[in-house]
Design a protein around this nucleic acid. Structure first.
Lengths: 301, 301
DNA sequence: GCTATCCATGAGTAGAATTCATAATACATG
DNA sequence: CATGTATTATGAATTCTACTCATGGATAGC
């Protein structure tokens, strides 16, 4: 009934002072505007303006409606602009899911320059303890998945962005502290501190202990990486962490990295939905992640 | 481009959860909505929602647009409602022009019940000193004219609403105070206090002095009725005023009314544009004015 | 697996918006 | 005062758009 056109015409007429000029500005005929407004007047039962000499003068009702136009139209125009930014990937919310706990620290380095480059894009990090990355990604719960374990999925694509070694972190005074590397059997008297996730998602089990059919003396779980490192530093146990993390905080806390067997080499991958791969800010995020400074090359903020 | 329908559909879908249900609610086909939204998506280059099982789930862009819908649609709906009130005369601004100064006091009595009856109608009183009523009325400067001097005009209609007598007001101690009536010649030694308007708009000149070819000793002008009455009461001069006004304030201030010759009998008229005569609140105003209590029948508030 | 219930889509149609041509009106100007 | 140039208004023709209908494809529940 009361359509956007009507408001546009009203505003244009108010600005240019005449139907003819307004029609010009809108790329339409004067006749079109006249017909269209006449119809609206008929439907509403109101006169919006009245001829006064050769120009038009708004009635009370017209003024009222013009007021509406001045409020509503900018809102619609901004909305269109924003939506077109969504379309071109200059705006949106990038919801990032994280599967590996220490990845969070790595992520922070990528997010900072990303935010600077896309001021209209919000970033939201979802770091649930129990978190099935791939389903969350394909189910549109998150738009980007940071994980060391890419999976095969028809709609998803994974990009390796950062290589690292998973090592054993031990306290400075620990009996294994001086070693270059250790065997799986050497952990059987150790307390192993891990994140609270199933063993099949912990590399130290899947890639190191399980193949040798070994187990630690005990396993404790902790959610927070900082606390975990503190516990290790205080000699309460040992933990598997990325080498760059140990080397970065090691000097500060008193941590030492020890290679696990021949070394567990991993890669942080970024997973996205195939449909999103060409969205500007998502592609740029991956680009940025690839070129991001290696965690150990630069100190943390 | 982004039309009202789109917002309506978006809101309806958000509410009912499915296109089919929304179509039902809007009295359209599911197909219609699907086509229409698809087109919008194409124009904007955005997907608004995505099929999830058998229902729809809004994307970020969709959520954003839904937000717009929730802001804009109510505004439009209210606007339509208000305009239809304009149409039926239940809303508007009644701009009243006053030509005769003391009429203002009479007007107040009509305005009060009018405001109570039309809570959505604003009243604006324009009481310029130099004020040509008829042109202001036909030129849409005012919607209602309160005047004792109706004019002939093809587009205007005047309704007599209140009869009164124009009398001479004198102070209690004045030499004419006891008289029932006076002749024009008896004013030649008096100071006549009037409103600052041309003599041809003052009844005491046109209907009393001019026919007898008389003039007062002097003429002073004052804009304010209260001051005018004070001046007369203090014996500084005499003035022509409606009888009801003199009788209402006379006891209080010390004023007495004296008939001018055989009496000057006037009528307050309400002028409206013919086109407006059937507007609800205007017709009601005239109705109310006709039935209003005579000023002298009731004391002022 | 079958069925009910969604959404998507192509083709045809009814209706609405737009244009064109022209009338009616107001203002300026020689 | 007539003439020319601005307006807006209006009727008829045309173009275009939005809608419906019919149907296909997908999903969830039984």
């Amino acid at each position: 009934m009361l359509e956007r056109v009507h408001l546009v015409v009203l505003r244009e007429v108010a600005e240019h002072g005449s139907l003819t000029a307004a029609a010009e500005g809108l790329g339409l005929t004067q006749s079109a505007l006249s017909h269209s407004m006449k119809k609206l007047e008929g439907q509403l039962g109101v006169t919006l303006w009245r001829r006064e000499g050769r120009s038009l003068r708004l009635t009370q009702a017209g003024e009222e409606l013009l007021q509406v136009a001045r409020e509503v139209l900018p809102r619609l125009e901004v909305a269109e602009e924003r939506l077109s930014q969504f379309a071109s990937g200059r705006r949106g919310t990038l919801r990032i899911g994280i599967e590996c706990h220490p990845c969070y620290r790595w992520l922070l380095r990528v997010v900072a320059p990303f935010l600077a480059r896309f001021p209209n894009v919000e970033v939201d990090v979802k770091q649930k303890v129990q978190f099935e990355g791939a389903p969350a990604l394909s189910g549109y719960e998150v738009d980007l998945l940071v994980t060391p374990d890419p999976v095969e999925h028809p709609d998803l694509r994974f990009h390796g962005v950062f290589d690292y070694e998973q090592v054993l972190a031990v306290g400075r005074g620990h009996r294994l502290a001086g070693r270059a590397c250790i065997e799986a059997s050497e952990l059987k008297e150790e307390v192993l501190i891990t994140y609270p996730v199933p063993q099949d998602r912990l590399d130290i089990f899947t890639h190191f202990l399980a193949p040798a059919n070994q187990r630690p003396a005990a396993q404790k779980t902790v959610e927070n990486t900082d606390i975990l490192m503190q516990l290790v530093a205080s000699g309460r146990g040992v933990a598997a962490l990325p080498r760059w993390l140990v080397e970065e905080y090691g000097p500060l806390l008193g941590l030492v990295a020890v290679r696990l067997g021949g070394g567990i080499f991993k890669q942080i991958c970024l997973g996205v939905r195939e449909a999103d791969e060409r969205v500007d800010y998502i592609a740029s995020f991956i680009e940025l992640a690839r070129g991001a400074p290696r965690p150990c090359e630069e100190s943390v903020l």
